[in-house]
Design a protein around this nucleic acid. Sequence first.
DNA 1: ATGGTTGTGTTACAA
Length: 256
Amino acid sequence: MIIASWNVNSIRARLPRVSEWLTDFAPDVVMLQELKCITENFPYLEIEDLGYHVAVHGQKSYNGVAILSKFPIEDILTELPGDEGDEQARYIEATIKGVRVGGLYLPNGNPLPGPKFDYKLKWMDRLIGRAKYLLAREEVFVLGGDYNCCPKDEDCYDPHRLSGDALMQPETRDRYYSLLNLGLTDAFRHFFPSGHNYTYWDYQRGAWQKDNGLRIDHLLLSPQAADILKKCDIDRVPRSKERASDHTPIWCDLAL
DNA sequence: ATGGTTGTGTTACAA
């Protein structure tokens, strides 16, 4: 079962790119982030015509997440527990063929210091709490998405230049490592223990052409999922196209 | 050299 994650930076603007990737790559499950549309405006018909079930948690203008699946989607949760007052659409979780799949769009957190960075750290603390809850069930699960976290300096094309960015801060990285230390596996680093492999390239300054990127989209696996992990990679092809998202998909293959 | 790009939805804000 191929499970992927892709920050599409507007599902409506990106529909041609998403449709061709679903057709060509044919992943079984896809977590989408930054839909930038309300749930009612999601292009359900176009995606369903490609053979996918759809679960959407949208929001006007910003954020918005979805799960696409070739198999039925069950037990959908659209809120990350821990803050009843949080109205930002950044989390969606569901069960597909017995696999619990959590798609997340972690807050960017810039500028810092300030309320946006504080919100990011609190959101990460809630995610750690959710991961603990899911781990206690001892099931196959994947927490994937745009983590807005560069785990190490090698995950950034120029760590010195971005040293003040929220994606690079020790407080951000500490919380990401807390997730790993719970027992989750960074699926990409399982196969590529080191190296400069990016999932995001800024639209500005020719970042794509110069490979000035960041590795900020991750697939974190429960021990039961890591046990059946066959492969993980980043598909750079969608980023190379015209009218591309600034992120490209990351995917893993589980022996299911 | 303190720039540049994309998207939403109005010309500001987020990334």
